[in-house]
Design a protein around this nucleic acid. Sequence first.
DNA 1: ATGAAAGCGCTAACAA
DNA 2: TTGTTAGCGCTTTCAT
Lengths: 352, 352
Amino acid sequence: MEIGGLVINRKEVAKLAGVSEATVSRVLNNVGPIADRTRQRVLEAARQLNYHPSAIAQSFVKRKSGNIGVILPYVPKVHIFSTYYFSEILSGIGEQVKRNGYDLLLLFLTPEEELNYAQYFQKQKIDACIILGARDVPQERKALLELERGGYPFCLVNQRFEGCRYYGVDADHVTGSYEAVRHLAEQGAKDIAFVNGPMMYSNSADRLEGYRRALEEAGLPYRPERVFEGNYSRKSGYSLSASLTLQGSRPDAVFAANDRMAIGLLQGWKEKGLEAGRDIALAGYDDSDAAKLTGPPLTSVDVPFFEMGGRAVEHLIRQMQAHSESIAGEPFYEILPTRLMVRPSSKFNPRK
Amino acid sequence: MEIGGLVINRKEVAKLAGVSEATVSRVLNNVGPIADRTRQRVLEAARQLNYHPSAIAQSFVKRKSGNIGVILPYVPKVHIFSTYYFSEILSGIGEQVKRNGYDLLLLFLTPEEELNYAQYFQKQKIDACIILGARDVPQERKALLELERGGYPFCLVNQRFEGCRYYGVDADHVTGSYEAVRHLAEQGAKDIAFVNGPMMYSNSADRLEGYRRALEEAGLPYRPERVFEGNYSRKSGYSLSASLTLQGSRPDAVFAANDRMAIGLLQGWKEKGLEAGRDIALAGYDDSDAAKLTGPPLTSVDVPFFEMGGRAVEHLIRQMQAHSESIAGEPFYEILPTRLMVRPSSKFNPRK
DNA sequence: ATGAAAGCGCTAACAA
DNA sequence: TTGTTAGCGCTTTCAT
């Protein structure tokens, strides 16, 4: 049985072509002046031997892995790729990484090990990285600070850190939430509850800001007891559906910070015979595929996750160019627009 | 501005610890006998300098990248991670890859370049790979043959090749389909149509086999004109909804080869005022999250995609062990069971 | 236009 | 128990 592949190296190509190893490299890398006859001979020899230069050796000598890393948060009990949010961002990243000639290395965080992003650079597994699902907690800030100190190219997606000037791509969640809540108010809702996610995510804070702004503009009071905190899971939405309806006074409308929680609410309500768009108005967030399938279809805020992933890669490429040219690239935070998608769930029927 | 990270190498650790470079390696790799005092000194020096061995240099000398590759098919106009099928398999792969101390390299195929899986091994970017979405077409068979010839560890997921003995993990789609169609027949349906995917996927062929078997057992005739071919997209299901209902005789029931197409059918029918579970019975396949959300909820066949991904990694690990011990591992094709999930969409109402 | 040779950071065999 | 040394396959100067 054959063990491992027989790997041809430069030496054999050089021998077959009757040239030096250096010449083989020159031909294959298109560098320096080469006689046309020599080039032909080398290419032919390489073809005959089915030679492929070792990416590892190249990385080793160039001190570039050719990989862009994507750091994935640990989310308990969730198949991370199966969440609309991550999968869309990753698709966008994948497309752009490939287009730029890099490979994509996935780095899975585990709950046991402490956050250390810089290690991936020190170990030289990656040349740049994108961090998904970052949270505003001390150890995260520390890990990011270390990246900045090391001068390693990185880009955040969908998270900002107050007081830090990092590269990042975010969506305008303040406006997105503002528009969703304004829409609910325009439907005639006077008592609009908000099911938010954890505040350690900047986008949760943004949504709260948008919610408040819309209430204020609509002349409705902001009442802290009308803000509930879930954890962006369907289950947490489902659990909160109880507190949101069994309470003496049921709100006219609910704005949920993502579609999964909105779907949980929908399910909880359905079990109690309540229907969104009839008994209570509901708007979600993310405009996931699921939003179009629920009964009733869910009003939601579209976020350009796919584009965000692609833009993050472009920022990395630019950072790396700046580095190699010793130019100090200005940190850049890009904010992409969101869009409200109105569907039947947000209808409000005043005679309740 | 600092350009790139200052990377510490073994030499500096050796100097600081006052030992040779070899000793540093020995301590860090826990190899050979080491005096306890020496070990302490080295570890302390490494800690002080924040030293991380270069993974590239290690890979280079060991001729092992430490990466497991996942080859992703090119699917036009689809964000690949956003399909239930791929995302679940990938989640399973990711978990298991991490558990085994490897990193996950994603390899995106593009429609322009011709299929060449062996190159990733020749370039030494990966030590083993999983191939997703393989099709039974000549160039795919050629690419796989090359992998086998090279003795490179690889594993297929959800696809088999007649006449080849490759490692692979599949689900029992014959039985899965058989059970779905039998269920439809048991509901009283006499005319059961089948919306299948392209036959270049072995699992489409398997489904057809299960469909035929169930019909035969139910004493219903197999009629080729009742089999339609979509491409597993929602859109293709939507398009076929017309041919399936505008035709003179509408079937009693439809078995769709995946949930996306089933959802397309549902949408097409809804526009015509037809409702699954009332006017026509419908069963899908995959038991995706969406199946639980549709109106009506979709009867579907659950496939353990997550487990399949994990098992594929385990096969790779075993292959690599066999290689390193020069043992000839027996190619192994594993078939996991599926499970029918009955929901309202498959109700059949004879008075049509 | 081409060859010779140094060196990238590490592992592993051999010496001591 | 530790040090010395020879590569690993490539890129890149420096000669020629």
